[in-house]
């Protein structure tokens, strides 16, 4: 029996701050958030459109290079038919568009973007990214399961 919410963490812990998405999933699991499924992704895949069609709510979590005042943002994901030049570049908005177009279940969708700074072939977050991850975790801990 699936839960009603799925959280997709995108990234690679072998590339420093690119691991933010996965580490946030680790946090969700460790904290024991109820009612959610989690999936780790190096990159989004086209079949994720089918996957999210089975849920009422989807949250995409990824590191971002955007300069964010609070270190992270949590915003609504709007479907978009934009398409990158390769299969390695599928955006959450495109996955949501494909879900809406092909399966028409239209789950509520959000993006949690956490600012990262370093992307080298190395394990471990930068100090700044770790601080931003802490802020995002604190926020979600305070508002509870319904926020996720």
């Amino acid at each position: 029996m699936k839960n009603k919410t799925i959280v997709l963490g995108i990234g690679n812990i072998g590339r420093q701050d690119d691991g933010l998405g996965w580490l946030f999933l680790d946090f969700l699991k460790e904290e024991g958030f109820k009612g959610i499924d989690v999936e780790y992704r190096y990159q989004l895949q086209i079949e994720d459109a089918e996957l999210i069609s089975h849920y009422d709510k989807v949250v995409f979590v990824d590191a971002t290079i955007e300069n964010i005042k609070d270190g992270f943002y949590y915003r609504i994901c709007e479907p978009s038919d934009k398409f990158g030049f390769s299969s390695h570049e599928l955006e959450p908005e495109t996955i949501l568009f494909l879900e809406n177009d092909l399966y028409n279940k239209n789950p509520k969708a959000f993006i949690l973007g956490i600012q990262g700074y370093k992307w080298n072939l190395k394990m471990g977050l930068s100090k700044e990214a770790k601080a931003n991850l802490d802020k995002a975790e604190k926020f979600f801990s305070s508002v509870g399961t319904s926020s996720v």
């Binding site: 895949q45 086209i46 079949e47 459109a49 089918e50 996957l51 494909l98 177009d101 092909l102 399966y103």
Partner: peptide
């Protein structure tokens, strides 16, 4: 071609 696309997705899956 939504039906074709859906089959493609599920075959890949």
């Amino acid at each position: 071609y939504p039906e074709l696309a859906k089959k493609g997705i599920l075959m890949r899956k």
